[in-house]
Design a protein around this nucleic acid. Structure first.
Lengths: 211, 211
DNA sequence: GGATGTGAATGTCTTCACAGCT
DNA sequence: AGCTGTGAAGACATTCACATCC
């Protein structure tokens, strides 16, 4: 199969969101243009993206919603819910545990670890914060594919190393550290400061262009 | 000036993070390779990115840290702290208010709005949640450039419209709604479900390739 | 010697535009 | 008639490789 670009993958995820919305409303089909206008893509892009995986549409009609959404979930490995752990139960970590957006999309946070004595044992929603030194034993018993790192940046690499040794295959990294991991492990960085700074640049730049 | 790509802007932000780190350690210079290895870029890319704004390095030596970091802050409009408001004081909103990463980078959340009676008046760190209908009056008195939307998706567009009318110039959108805004307003979408789903795809795909 | 700055080459992604199906 | 699927063209981004300077 051909290599799929990161941007295509992100868009698939957006298409899926729309498909699910219209599936709930019992609509039958959506055109590439419908999907495009609701996700910020172009219709050609939607068609290209989808055609990378096969030919799902009906000419003159559009794409059958429930069939396509099922197919996308299949492509993206979303047919079954995944178990996710979180390391670092500070403010951000706590919020992510409490945030229902993850569970809605089938990502269940099943444990939250922290080093800090004061946090261990505290309740986070339906979870209790676990001592971080239990990590290895827990993962040996119940492996997970995905971990979220919300520790301070200084310890992120060490945490990543431990996760890698325990067979974690994907990491969502909220710290500022560029993680070095074995090639088979996938890391995605989420850096909200970067996003805000991009906004700042865009504003600044508008101003500059106006001069 | 030439058009600057989104990816360049994001990288500038990452370079800045490294520069600040080494500035704190009183280092004098960093090479493009130093910046590259710490941000996941290549040295050629670092040089290209920086050369878009001028010629800051010394051949044979590298880039003078404090001069370059100052310059990048200038380019990105980060010379002075910005005031930011947040609309939607649910779990995620509360976490963002409590998260210190923003303030560290000069983005101060100065108010948090919510519609929900139960939340209005509640303390969020040093802030108290304000009734959402005060939004217009507040912004008229004290305009802000940047707003963060963490409301339920259903009301995001309406909130965006109101913000636009109050002169907000940039929006960080955590909802699933594709916001329609006037051209002069910049929107950045942060969608953590999309990030997790991308990870899911990457894992799934490794498996598929192995077959 | 060692690192920058930058045209040229390459690679990747997006858009166009239209043939082909329903 | 309407909308997909897709080569070809175009736009954009990255990498190469080397002349240039400290």
């Amino acid at each position: 199969m051909q290599k799929i670009s990161e941007s295509t993958v992100k868009r698939l995820s957006l298409y899926l969101r729309i498909l699910e919305e219209f599936e709930a409303k019992n609509h039958e089909t959506l055109s590439s243009e419908d999907l495009a206008s609701r996700t910020g893509a172009t219709s050609a892009q939607v068609r290209k993206d989808l055609s990378l995986f096969g030919s799902f549409g009906k000419r003159g009609l559009g794409y059958p919603i429930s069939e396509l959404s099922k197919k996308i979930r299949q492509i993206m490995g979303l047919e079954h819910p995944s178990r996710v752990i979180l390391v670092g139960a500070g403010k951000l970590g706590a919020a992510l545990v409490g945030y229902h957006g993850f569970a809605e999309h089938g990502f269940n946070i099943v444990a939250a670890y922290d080093k800090d004595r004061k946090r261990i044992g505290q309740s986070l929603g339906s979870l209790k914060v676990t001592a971080e030194d239990k990590l290895e034993a827990d993962l040996r018993r119940d492996p997970v594919d995905i971990a979220i790192i919300t520790t301070p940046s200084g310890v992120a690499q060490e945490v990543a190393d431990r996760l890698a040794r325990c067979g974690v295959r994907a990491v969502l990294n909220f710290t500022n550290t560029k993680l070095m991991v074995p090639g088979e492990i996938v890391v995605k960085d989420v850096n909200m400061a970067v996003e805000l700074e991009s906004l700042s640049f865009a504003i600044q730049n508008q101003y500059r262009e106006a001069i």
